[in-house]
Amino acid sequence: MRYGDKVAVDGLSMRVERGTITAVLGPNGAGKTTTLETCEGYRRPRSGRVRVLGLDPVTQRKQLLPRIGVMLQDGGAWSGVRAVEMLEHIAALHAHPLPVPMLVERLGLGDCGRTPYRRLSGGQQQRLGLAMAVVGRPELLFVDEPTAGMDPAARRNTWELLSQMRADGVTIVLTTHYLEEAERLADQVHVLDRGRVIASGTPYELTAGGESTIRLVVTEPFPPDAPQLLATDLGSGVEVTPINARSLLISGQADASTLSVVSAWCEQHGILPESLTLGRRTLEDVFLQLTGREFEEADR
């Protein structure tokens, strides 16, 4: 997929199993929305093949649309329409919609039911967008950054809702740039960077491998050859990845004895650690190792 000269998504391949939650994870501009919109039939791929529920999303759109639910990243309502009125309208376009009052209650839209769309907060618009996507009782749900702009309570509520939908047999594909969201919710994660899938697997597969990590943050910038020196001291089986001038990630055989080698190395080089954290590898670390960039850095 291209926009002008810019290649947004290139050579992407993924498969989604029924009844699962798949997260497409990546920083802004990675190609998540383009991927989703290609599945929804909004865009036609220049090459390759997309099948959704066995249907071509462009040429067989009419058969496909009633079976899927779509949550757009923003907008999607008249500016003067009231929240519940909009939801009732989308419900009326479907054959067997969910009861609107129950959905309103479940998503906490009761307080703003009569508020015009343009006066809803960002989080309320997100929740209404999610409600519009699920009200038609789809078998397959595409949600684009479902919890962006939501407060923590609404985010947890949304996670519960999506988990319940999966339990009830709905297949869900979501994009997110919250690593925590992918880790907590997804059965399968595809990490996207610059239009390509750079890693796929369950959150456990992606973060496990017996690996734990140490993050070292220091008060003054490291000397230029610090990563190599430290790697030499740590010996084989341990990987040292610089994050920025003052922090680096140690992965592989990262345990208590590694910790002591690191602190000895700091002492030897007159470096004062600000923090030294031992933890399980996170998707953030996976992203860093695969791209050499910090996730937040890439997310700009």
Partner: peptide, 16 residues
Amino acid sequence: MTFTPAPGSAPFLRQV
């Protein structure tokens, strides 16, 4: 509330 899928389009005239 159950989310068990029951997809489908309303009749055309009702949609209009």
